[in-house]
Design a protein around this nucleic acid. Structure first.
Lengths: 216, 216
DNA sequence: AGAATAGTGTCTCTCAGACATTATTTG
DNA sequence: CAAATAATGTCTGAGAGACACTATTCT
């Protein structure tokens, strides 16, 4: 392949979901190869970057609109062997109840199974995880991994899985309710034990949490 | 101009400095045109993105190594008239004492004078300013705008200019010293009034500040 | 001596974090 | 009624934020 003056530019998406009490990531399997990668697609000139990222996922998922956020732009400049490749990477979250896949080319994989990624993708995944944890701690992004209504216990489990630590039930509830970002619905989740009130994200909520600044 | 399949990809740098008690940004003046833009440069395949950004600044500044951080990647896809352009934007900070320019093509401009930018660049600048304020509040990035040694008053002025609010002297000092990111030197700043102890950034400092998490 | 700037300590009030019991439902 | 899960309140300690005076140097 000839080296062109301009680099090749692709969009890549790292899509997370929660399943089986673990954080999962969507991977693209390559025929007859042992490694996997994140879904990616050449840039489309008639779409915005975010639209390109959405369309990249639509190839594999029935879901309509997916929560997306630009993560970082990587370049593989140093590898002189190949065409210079620039990857604009997005980070995405999929609700629990929309995890069915529309293609055999992709699959869910636990984030801890990193052996199948190459080093560049491992780095991207690490960074995406850091961003996810960070966003989760300081904003209300956790809802994006749950269905429209959810119990406070569901929400707490989500945070516990991603942050990988146990949280105190009373403190968790106090703070998430004080933050005023969710509101109770009139629905209840039934099952074993006492039914739980289902909550929903307040559409008018200001999701950013006031944190402690270094300077007043 | 023909529309190519692949977009054109450039690096753009928004460089800030402090001068005359105001935040300044480096702009590139275009001959016989009334608008200005941020320095930019086509991607170089043999350099990493950050190296490209550094080289983009070296055209105009004698300074060696400049503090840089990737800001965001923008695309102008919707404008069908022109070649599709992708801009990988970096955000940079220059110490006070290195603001001399090596080229007539560029100049410092107060960040509030936004009338000379086009809408896309205005948006980038807004975002860069938000990032700068954010970083300043939660990390120790403020030092990057000052010489290697500085007085606590210098530092406080820096924060006040960028955050655009007055800070309490005692609280500021207490917290910056507790954060353990700077240390006193044996030098003093002389001038009118009592001489000030000069401080320097601790090279081994962990610059990230522990903030108040939404969840424990 | 006066002008200019550097440097310092305390109190209050809010909120993070630790912690155990009662309430409601199902089988 | 036993098992399962939901829901709830209090106390303590740390730190944010408000606030005013003394110290050192220069002219």
């Amino acid at each position: 392949m000839e080296t062109l003056a301009q680099p090749l530019t692709e969009i890549k998406v790292i899509l997370f979901s929660l399943q089986h009490h673990a954080l999962q990531v969507l991977v693209h399997a390559h025929d007859s190869q042992s490694f996997v990668s994140f879904p990616s697609r050449a840039i489309q000139s008639d779409l915005s970057l975010e639209e390109s990222a959405q369309s990249c996922l639509k190839l594999f998922l029935p879901a309509e609109e997916i929560y997306l956020e630009q993560l970082y732009t990587y370049s593989d400049s140093k590898t002189r062997q190949r065409q210079h490749l620039i990857s604009i990477v997005y980070f995405a979250l999929l609700p629990n109840n929309k995890i069915d896949l529309a293609s055999e080319q992709v699959a869910w994989m636990q984030v801890h199974e990193q052996r199948h990624f190459n080093d560049a993708e491992k780095e991207m995944l690490e960074y995406a995880l850091r961003r996810l944890r960070y966003k989760l701690e300081y904003t209300a992004v956790g809802f994006e991994l749950l269905p429209e209504t959810f119990s406070l216990t569901d929400l707490q489990r989500t945070y516990e899985i991603i942050l990988d630590e146990a949280l105190d039930k009373r403190n968790f509830r106090r703070r998430i309710l004080q933050a005023n970002i969710i509101e109770p619905t009139h629905y209840q989740k039934k099952g074993e034990g006492r039914p739980a009130t289902l909550y929903q994200y307040r559409s008018d909520a200001v999701a950013e949490i006031k944190t402690r600044r270094l300077f007043p």
